[in-house]
């Protein structure tokens, strides 16, 4: 019964890798009992694997932490992501917005301050961030 036998030989890779179902594994083990070639291949591979593909030596946690620091030090400069500016930018805009009410109350008493605040207002609307955030017109 060559075809059936050949099919069983073929299962050797999956057998070695633990990828057979319980039923398939039992079937292959029965085949092993009657097939010296497969038995030898399984034995030979297990020896070979132990010699040539043994576990790598464990790494210490000190080595690991040193490695983490080295990688982190080599990461590219953090790109300024727009959504990270958003919180301080909105806060800053709000502060200027609130401040812009002050001149109308103090206009007569402190002209210099009014001038400075007007400049700040002009600089503020020229800020490209305002366009990005879309608050420029609301102020």
């Amino acid at each position: 019964m060559m075809p059936e036998n050949a099919m069983d030989h073929d299962k050797i890779t999956e057998f070695l890798d633990g990828e057979l179902t319980t039923e398939e594994r039992e079937r292959f083990q029965a085949h092993l009992a009657s097939c010296p070639d497969c038995r030898r291949a399984v034995e030979d591979w297990r020896k070979t694997s132990r010699v040539f593909f043994g576990p790598v030596p464990a790494l210490s946690s000190a080595d690991r932490e040193l490695f983490v620091r080295k990688v982190m030090a080599r990461l590219p400069e953090e790109e300024a992501a727009p959504w990270r500016w958003l919180v301080p930018a909105l806060g800053f805009s709000f502060a200027l917005f609130a401040l812009s009410f002050l001149p109308s109350q103090q206009e007569q008493t402190d002209p210099l301050k009014t001038l400075l605040l007007a400049d700040a207002g002009a600089a503020q609307s020229a800020d490209p961030l305002d366009e990005l955030v879309g608050l420029g017109d609301e102020r």
Partner: peptide, 25 residues
């Protein structure tokens, strides 16, 4: 990805042994 680069350290820490193991072998 949202900009907290420092969180990458924990990912490196977690997967160091696997990557290093493969590279060693």
């Amino acid at each position: 990805l949202s900009g907290r680069q420092e969180d990458y350290a924990e990912l490196v820490r977690r997967h160091h042994a696997k990557v290093m193991g493969l590279c060693l072998s």
